[in-house]
Simulated assay, not measured.
Amino acid sequence: MNSILSAIIFGVCCVLVAVHAQRQSARSAISSALLRSIIQEEDCEVRPNSDIGGPTVWINMHLIGLEKLKERTNVLQAGLSVDLRWNDPRLSWDPEEYGNITNIFLPIKKIWIPDITIWQSADPTKPFFSKEQKIAQVFSTGDVLWAPKATMTVYSDMSVNNVSDSIEHRATAYLGSWMLNVGQIDIQSSQPIIDLTMMHWSPLHLENTSVSRVVQVFNEIPGFNGYPLLQLNIFATERDNSSKSVIM
């Protein structure tokens, strides 16, 4: 009796495994068909909505770490996680036509990615974004989410606060497209501050941060509308009296 029951259970398990495998295979085939339908190799170098002014890129920054470079005491280096969101209508699809799939992951080399960087970097030879995050999440609406890690190296204005006996660092950085102007792309911040929930430790005490949108205009170019940028302000302090000799 037990052997018959075991055989029945084994048979049922085999059927369930086979059905699951078929469903997975069918879903994989649907995903492959979806990828073929939305990815066009020639489009990855062309910005979305280029005929009507280009995309709006929403940026949210999470500070992971902040420190002063020992060899250059007036330079701050920040480790960040950056969320970039924009819409590319060329990547949209109807979920009902593709097994109710509402989002997929695509290699960033296959889609358009904004050329965001830090203007006036203290180390211009170092890329802003890490090369690790090579995948972006794409939704059926055409919305794209890319969340790379980044390193920001910027100059700071150092001063001594004689009341609190601390050294103050005030740094300003500008984040935006290196090539595209205000008529070709827009840059917006998702928050008025840099998020600190991912930050665990720093040798500096972070007093506050702020993020605001500005437009950099060059007067020597007549009729030029300028570049949309995010102005990042960081105010941090340290209680290291040994640094006073450096800035006095």
Rank of each mutant, 00 (worst) to 15 (best):
P89K: 03
F139M: 02
S190H: 03
L80W: 07
P192A: 08
P148G: 05
I104S: 08
S189P: 12
E168V: 15
I101Q: 01
T102G: 11
T102K: 10
F129G: 01
S156Q: 04
I118Q: 00
F105H: 12
T117S: 14
K70E: 15
S130V: 07
G99L: 01
E168M: 11
N100F: 01
W112K: 11
S130E: 04
I101N: 08
A78G: 03
I167K: 02
Q191R: 10
M198T: 10
F105K: 14
Y98N: 00
W93V: 02
I104V: 14
D88K: 00
W86M: 13
A147E: 13
T102D: 14
L106K: 04
S81H: 08
D83T: 02
H169T: 05
K131L: 12
E97S: 01
P114V: 01
S177N: 09
T153C: 11
R72H: 14
A122E: 10
V82A: 08
H169C: 12
N87A: 04
N161L: 13
L91S: 03
G176R: 01
L106I: 10
V82T: 03
P114K: 06
M198R: 11
V138Q: 04
Q133W: 05
I185Y: 11
Q184A: 14
K110N: 14
T117E: 10
T197A: 14
Q77I: 14
S166L: 06
T153K: 07
D165S: 14
T125K: 09
R85E: 10
T151L: 13
I135R: 00
P95S: 06
W146D: 01
W86Y: 14
T141F: 04
S156L: 08
L84E: 07
A78K: 06
G79S: 09
G183F: 06
P114D: 00
N181W: 15
E168W: 11
P95A: 08
T102V: 13
W86Q: 13
L80F: 07
L106Y: 00
W112L: 09
S130D: 03
M199G: 03
T125A: 09
R170I: 12
Q133E: 09
T197I: 07
I118F: 08
D88M: 00
P89N: 09
S130A: 06
K109G: 12
R85S: 04
Q133I: 00
D157G: 12
L180R: 05
S140N: 10
W146I: 01
Y155I: 14
S164T: 15
N74S: 12
M199E: 01
Q133T: 05
A150L: 05
F128K: 08
E97A: 06
W93G: 02
I194K: 03
G183C: 12
T73Q: 15
L106E: 02
G142T: 03
A173H: 08
T117K: 14
E168L: 10
L145V: 07
T117I: 12
D94H: 05
L91T: 03
L91F: 00
L80K: 11
L196V: 09
I108E: 02
S190C: 13
R85H: 07
T117R: 12
A147M: 13
F139I: 03
L91C: 09
E71K: 06
I194H: 07
T153N: 11
G99F: 06
V160T: 15
P124W: 06
S140I: 03
